[in-house]
Simulated scan of single mutants.
Amino acid sequence: MLTLSVIVPAHNEESGLPATLEALLRQTVPAERIIVVDDGSIDRTGEVAASYGVTVVRPPHNLGSKARAQNFALPYCDTDLVLAVDADTVLADDYIELIKPAFDDERVVIAAGCVQSRFERTWTERGRSIEYLYGFHWNRPIQNMANSPTVCSGCCSVFRRRPLVDFGGFPERTIVEDMDYTWSAQMMGQKAVYVAKAVAWAADPEDLTYLRKQDWRWMAGFAQNVRLHLWRMIPRKPVLALWILLALWEIVTAPLWLAVPFIAPLMGGSWVGTVGWWAGLEVGLTLPPLLYAAKRRKLPVIRVLRNLPCVYLMKFVNIYYAWKALVVELLLVPLRLSKGLTVYEKGRPDPSPVPIS
């Protein structure tokens, strides 16, 4: 039986950490060790973690990124597998039990489950819940069937420890270590897998301020990985490269698609007719996967439909930061006109972001 350690990087997480640790301690297949990295917290994060009887390690100073905090804890792990869990993520009680069998295949070095939203209180949380339902019940299963998932979510990924250590630990060269390692492993001939039955609930940005921070980090990190990996990926992992190219195409064409209802009348078309076919096509492509996801997760359909309009507000934010990421990371950085995104900020309040050198 494969053994497993858990690493929970935590910076000022005293409020969210209890739910995360309680879920880890309820696992039907328990972890051999749970390690909380109290990464320069100025609140009671360390005290809260210690009260649950888990191992608490403290770097001498704030390390400034999740990957660095995870790497600080990695030498404390002597198990076959390492599960990295964000300090605001709650795992289903059977998460470890369901995800461990993926590693019966010795080629698998990273696996992650289905991420869903913990809360649906604000428009940003509701919009993110729709994105998760669509992504984890449409895009991710298709990618997994093609043996080329684009990312194993960093909030709940399990890693085979030895290959991770041999790689040099969690990658610190980009702002999104989960995508970096997922792509790197597959390009080396190893496998990444999506385990749909294993569910994790993540806390999402509660307002526009923190949605912007999270979107910028995610989109800049994606573009950093494109710059770092894409050309080498095409011959080594062509199907994965195809998903990345399709994502780039979607980013480039998204503003035009959203502008169609407004442009058509200016070109002499019928506004009512244009909006009709545009909305029909949009709903026709979006609704079936959402209804399937609602059934799969036993969610009330009315709740999903209520949240659907919020995702269109988020699209404008997503597109802005996606385009900004392409310009900054793929154009200005190579021209040495920008350093790109080097500061790791969470999608929730973080009083002391630290630059990545």
Rank of each mutant, 00 (worst) to 15 (best):
E172W: 02
M233C: 06
R336A: 11
G276C: 12
T89H: 09
G113F: 00
A49M: 05
H229W: 08
Q190P: 14
D43V: 03
P261K: 01
T182E: 00
K295P: 01
L266K: 08
V54W: 03
N147P: 12
L287G: 07
E22Y: 14
A31W: 02
N307E: 12
W201Q: 15
T342E: 15
T274S: 06
P289W: 01
V311D: 03
G53W: 02
P351F: 06
L164M: 08
L242R: 01
R232M: 08
N225A: 15
R118T: 12
V328M: 03
F103V: 09
I34S: 00
D204V: 13
P300S: 03
R161F: 05
V36H: 00
V90T: 15
F262D: 12
V54F: 04
R121K: 15
P171T: 02
K100D: 14
L330Q: 10
I42M: 12
Y76S: 11
Y292C: 00
D105F: 07
P59F: 07
L245R: 03
Q143S: 05
D350Q: 10
E120C: 15
T3M: 07
E13G: 04
V275P: 03
W216K: 12
P238L: 04
L337M: 13
V48S: 02
D38G: 05
G40T: 08
E329P: 02
V328F: 00
A264I: 13
L308N: 05
Y321K: 03
R217H: 09
V165W: 07
R348D: 13
A185W: 02
R297I: 01
N225V: 10
V327G: 13
V158Q: 11
I319E: 00
V176G: 06
R162G: 11
L211I: 10
P18N: 07
L24H: 01
S357W: 14
